[in-house]
């Protein structure tokens, strides 16, 4: 029983603040993963060369692909971690309802995805600086946030949704695992069987094609997938028992 009545927004704000504080360590792991990503980006650019009379041309291309990929893996792990029994048990005394806790989780994952997306894109500029300093190669196609802001913003938005989607899938699978290991096994089995059957491959390829059609369809697929994962996970969380 409480002497003061807090609104939904106030309670959620307190929850999110508390959870962000609790998962601050995860940001350090993101930073470590991104540092690894920066090193990997520097080591493995896409390259091609052409030889003709008079000239041998070699061109290397650097993109933030590795950084985004590693940030996605981190997001997947954070989503998975949030559903772990010991994590939920630690946080439970500070939580008003399970639904509230799940909504708090979603808000925290969104905040972390935004941070991960922005830092991944900015990490690409560290890569650029190192390239500039370590070699005197001619800069060819330099799309940066100053010369092509639309490319930067377009990709930033897409990456945030991409990272959020991985976090949502991790959260969903983690919640399934808490509920029933058998169901998780079935889901993983279905996914792998899809890879090896023509019908399953058609579904996967169809989804990828829809996502690749443009920025909005990509975001649409990511939003639908993320929202579905979060809604189902929240529903499952409502039925979970937390034992101290």
């Amino acid at each position: 029983m409480s002497l003061t009545n807090k609104t939904f927004a106030e309670t959620l704000q307190v929850q999110v603040k508390f959870k962000l504080h609790a998962y601050l360590g995860m940001i350090v792991y993101l930073i470590m993963v991104q540092i690894v990503g920066i090193l990997m980006s520097l080591m493995g650019p896409t390259g091609m060369s052409s030889v003709s009379s008079f000239i041998d041309i070699n061109a290397e291309m650097y993109t933030p692909t590795v950084l985004i990929f590693l940030s996605n893996l981190w997001a997947f792990y954070v989503g998975l971690l949030m559903t772990r029994h010991d994590q939920r048990a630690d946080i439970m005394p500070f939580v008003s309802t399970r639904i509230m806790s799940s909504i708090g989780d979603v808000v925290v994952l969104v905040a972390l995805a935004v941070y991960a997306g922005i830092t991944a894109m900015l990490s690409n500029y560290v890569v650029r600086i190192v390239i500039l300093l370590k070699s005197n190669k001619h800069m060819l196609s330099d799309e940066n946030m100053f010369s092509a802001p639309e490319v930067f913003i377009e990709n930033l938005v897409a990456f945030i949704f991409f990272i959020l989607c991985f976090a949502a899938v991790g959260y969903f699978l983690g919640m399934i695992a808490q509920k029933s290991k058998k169901v998780l096994f079935i889901i993983v089995a279905v996914f792998f069987s899809m890879l090896f059957t023509s019908f399953g491959q058609e579904i996967l390829l169809g989804t990828i094609k829809i996502a690749q059609f443009g920025l909005f369809s990509f975001m649409g697929v990511m939003i639908i997938l993320s929202a579905s994962c979060f809604i189902v996970a929240t529903f499952l969380a409502g039925n979970l028992e937390v034992k101290g």
Binding site: N58, E60, M61, P64, M139, S141, D142, E143
Partner: peptide, 8 residues
């Protein structure tokens, strides 16, 4: 000749 292209 070596060229570098970096992009977001």
């Amino acid at each position: 000749l070596s060229f570098v292209s970096v992009s977001d």
